[in-house]
Design a protein around this nucleic acid. Structure first.
Lengths: 207, 207
DNA sequence: TAGATTGTTAATCGATTAACAATC
DNA sequence: TAGATTGTTAATCGATTAACAATC
């Protein structure tokens, strides 16, 4: 499969998904690309262009059925299946992720938590016991894990990556302050400080 | 001021800053756009093009002085000055931000923490007492705050925005699951779930 | 049917890459 | 000086917007 859809389009899909979800909550049944474009502050043309990468979801003269489009985008994003996930590093950020109910609704299920600190090992977050990272290898051999979220300092992150490779993990959601790049693995680097620096730049510009 | 630098360029600046910081730690004194491009997995051309938006920081036949370039990019990003910041919502994510020492090094100083929950009000995070959101207005009148980080549910976020406007706040770093859009304010929306959905899409593609 | 709105092609705009003269 | 590498212009590539025929 996989015609090459541009990265820009993919980055917009979750946003469409979110707005459609809101429309559903509001009980809106159908929407035209024009009305949606006004809500989202993008052009109607872009919306139609984006969606048509994946198929003709609309109907001339009618627009798009909100629920149908929501479901379709969900499918495209892979939200119809389970995504077993572990979190390595149970500091505040790790716990924030583990506690995020919204992720669970989207199919991302936390099935394991790991930490190096013997102080926190043994405690529980949302009923899930925190295991020592030394148990990681065994855990991966006995559980199917798709995504590993890394929420620890960069040096620790780099060393844990080798344990993750070759153990069935498909993707790394990396919050450590390095750009991880691992063969045969999908890596999404989230750099909160980058986002803060961009904010800072924009403040300077706005003066 | 402000010639229009494209958003794509700005998004790359923090990354350059990070790599230059690493080079400094490694004791590297100078680097050519070619060598840097290999480290960063971008083209040398792009690096030179990006930097020349802001000035000629390099030298023909020599390359770029790492420390000089690091400082210059820091200046461009506004990291040479203090950015007093408050965090509204002291759940795990709020605490993660409040505890992030790296932000402090970049000039982002947490000077206030707020929460609605009477249970946590009065407790301290890194020595900073958590105040009730009802004190927010008064706090803003008596303290100079540049950035407000919002780490609470979206409904609460939308209602707190009105308190923020007109009280000197320059920017909102928004983690709530809405795209906030406030007049005369710089807003950076960080949607962790969007990032996770993109990851999910890419897993599907990689099959 | 007439009106609305899509899907899609064509035109424009912007960003990335290539190339090379300038120069340290 | 010769070699290296920048700054910058020109060429290419990709993404966004405009336009409109197709069609519900």
């Amino acid at each position: 499969m996989a015609k090459d859809i541009s990265k820009a389009v993919i980055r917009r899909l979750p946003r469409y998904f979110r707005y459609l979800g809101e429309l559903m909550e509001e009980g809106v049944e159908r929407i035209s690309s024009k009305d949606l474009s006004e809500r989202m502050h993008v052009t109607a043309s872009q919306i139609r262009q984006d969606l048509n990468n994946f198929g003709g979801f609309g109907q001339q003269g009618y627009g798009y059925n909100v629920e149908f489009l929501y479901e379709e985008i969900g499918k495209i994003l892979g939200l119809t299946r389970r995504h077993p996930m572990i979190v390595i590093g149970t500091g505040h950020l790790g716990q924030a992720i583990a506690n995020y109910v919204k992720f669970e609704k989207l199919g991302f299920l936390i099935i394991g938590l790991f930490d190096v600190d013997p102080e926190v090992v043994g405690s529980k977050v949302r009923g899930i016991p925190v295991l020592p990272v030394t148990d990681l290898q065994t855990f991966l051999e006995t559980h199917e894990v798709e995504i590993a979220a890394l929420t620890m300092p960069k040096d620790a992150a780099e060393s844990v990556v080798s344990t993750l490779t070759g153990n069935g993990i498909r993707a790394i959601w990396n919050f450590a302050h390095v750009d991880l790049d691992v063969d045969d693995m999908v890596v999404e680097n989230v750099h909160l400080s980058d986002s803060l620096m961009e904010l800072s730049y924009r403040i300077l510009q706005s003066e």
